[in-house]
Nucleic acid binder design. Sequence first.
DNA 1: AATGAATGAGGTTTCATTCAT
DNA 2: CATGAATGAAACCTCATTCAT
Lengths: 207, 207, 207, 207
Amino acid sequence: MPRAERERQMMDAGVRVFGERGYRAASMDEIAELAGVSKPLVYLYLNSKEDLFTACIRRESAALIAAVRAGVRVDVPADRQLWDGLTAFFAHTAEHPDGWAVLHSQARSGGDPFVAEVVAMREEIVAFVTSLIAAAAREAHGDPELAEREVAGLAQALVGAAEALAGWANGDDSVSAREAAATMMNFAWAGLGNLMAGARWSVPDAS
Amino acid sequence: MPRAERERQMMDAGVRVFGERGYRAASMDEIAELAGVSKPLVYLYLNSKEDLFTACIRRESAALIAAVRAGVRVDVPADRQLWDGLTAFFAHTAEHPDGWAVLHSQARSGGDPFVAEVVAMREEIVAFVTSLIAAAAREAHGDPELAEREVAGLAQALVGAAEALAGWANGDDSVSAREAAATMMNFAWAGLGNLMAGARWSVPDAS
Amino acid sequence: MPRAERERQMMDAGVRVFGERGYRAASMDEIAELAGVSKPLVYLYLNSKEDLFTACIRRESAALIAAVRAGVRVDVPADRQLWDGLTAFFAHTAEHPDGWAVLHSQARSGGDPFVAEVVAMREEIVAFVTSLIAAAAREAHGDPELAEREVAGLAQALVGAAEALAGWANGDDSVSAREAAATMMNFAWAGLGNLMAGARWSVPDAS
Amino acid sequence: MPRAERERQMMDAGVRVFGERGYRAASMDEIAELAGVSKPLVYLYLNSKEDLFTACIRRESAALIAAVRAGVRVDVPADRQLWDGLTAFFAHTAEHPDGWAVLHSQARSGGDPFVAEVVAMREEIVAFVTSLIAAAAREAHGDPELAEREVAGLAQALVGAAEALAGWANGDDSVSAREAAATMMNFAWAGLGNLMAGARWSVPDAS
DNA sequence: AATGAATGAGGTTTCATTCAT
DNA sequence: CATGAATGAAACCTCATTCAT
């Protein structure tokens, strides 16, 4: 069996076990057994537990981003792009729950080197969303009305909302990717539109 | 030294170490040392690593919810309640980063018994947000326009967005609690308002 | 509460816990709790786990020997003395199963100092049985026919048989002390009588 | 070194240390060191302290029973069979004092799972002795005169006497296996013979 | 007379990792 | 290419024992 194939099997097993147990609680024994190979082979190909986990994070990150990219066409309006991206995102996380668990829960609690990996991926998505918001603003007014810092916060919030909905939809499998995406668009897009139009919410009097 | 105070010290140390390292990577040795006591005393008072972690989760959950409740008055409009709750939330998480790390990152990746604890707390917050959205809808039209399931998704999204902004604001401490709350309100409230008014976003044509 | 009474309670608890769990597996915590006192008091009165166990062994040894002695009258024939002693022995072990467990199982596996204690007690019983056999031999022929070494072996065997029957009778409580004693007498006395009469079993031809 | 041989070494060490110290007082460190391997290897091959002890008990039980069986021929009179079995038994226990300590002292005080193991072995021996007594009764009268319950008690007593003599002979190594077996036969066989002939010992008058 | 508070030492077990073949 | 054999290090946890009050 060629090396690439073996490596894929090992990483499949890694994603599965890391996703279920977390980085520390996962054991190389279990991963090797699930991959159907001996432990020394795992070390020969993937070097160490840390490297294996990093490789898993990178592979799943790349797969998620590729899925979102593949779902989005650049020649359509910004809201359509966001809709397509969200749909692809929810569909992918639903189809790869272990990969999503690795990225969303496990990598984040695994300590420095892993957090950095996943932060990098998240920033790529945030940047994509940021560009969509900016594009939408341009489409609406020809000129960005929103301060850069404000857009950054909005993009973080939007991505966070999507992550939460992914967990919610995965936990209750009667929620489809389209339904989750629709909730997101209804939740976010109108607010964004108002913002772009210059409307701001302001603290009402408490008394 | 009386037992209650010692227990508090131990849990302080537990929150700190669990928050930084995660459940599995944290060692009882380090926690005991940080608390300034011997390991057997930790076991005598708190029983086991699992019980200690659970106790930490519960204490931090209760503190967070108490802080939010304390920030909200019930005799003000729904949007003001949401604003106050968000401000209190962001202020509390900024002041207790380890506690927030325990609740947000570590408890979620620690496996069944801990996930259940944190899910219970999150549901309490989601229920609060849900009630606010429903109240706002009543205030706006005297009649809830939104389906229950739709509200549930919106509340999940809103809470997720707030969680993401808490992490973002904590990472970059130039973002104040008020600023984060303002971002949330601008992001979420207008969208909710539109929804309540019956406006829906619909998939535009892709071509 | 007077000290003697407290000590008795502690030793009662000790016999119970040591009998059930063994010396190593017994914990001073459990003993103190069962005795209804605090641990430091146990140490104040009985010094150490080793001393406590030794005290338990001694008390139970003394009680067993006293019970056997109390059952035997010296002015009756040797077989009657043996019968009375056996009856008293089986009755006492049945009424004090924890004490018997301490003497028979636990003290023997606890290592040097405890083995010595129980060996001393056993030798007292063996000596009593030996004297009975010798007396019976004198009664029968006016002159001991049996070599001292031979008598020693017989006494060991008889005591071992009685110990085994005590365990057997205790495990199955439909066997009374009298029945066990009768079994012993039927098993042992006739053989002893034959021996005293000079009859010896000799190896038959195997072919 | 092949696994089977390593396992044998570990169990040799286990029998030695368990026999000397008892189950609880024995430490896996000492066993591993005596076996000349590291502790993790012991756990890899034998799973746990409990499993190791169980394995030792089973191996020594099997060895003892095999030794007795090998010493007995089935085509000879019952008393000859008993003599041969006793001789084999005393010879084996004298040659394997640690194994005998494990079976006789340590397994019995180790708590439920171990007691069950050794009780099973003892019952096999008791059954063998029981069958011999029954065979002897048939040889003597063509018809068993003894009640089943009575035979059971006699077999227990006989085995207990043999166990006691094994300890006695081991402690004083001038007593050979043949001598111990002769004592047993003289002690037991005549009594059994009388019983089969219908003679019973009855309580004499005490006055 | 009695105890709540505290610990040093040592136990079993697991795991990432390497070597010789 | 692949593995059976092996381990150093460290984790969780328990226990007999003491001290200050």
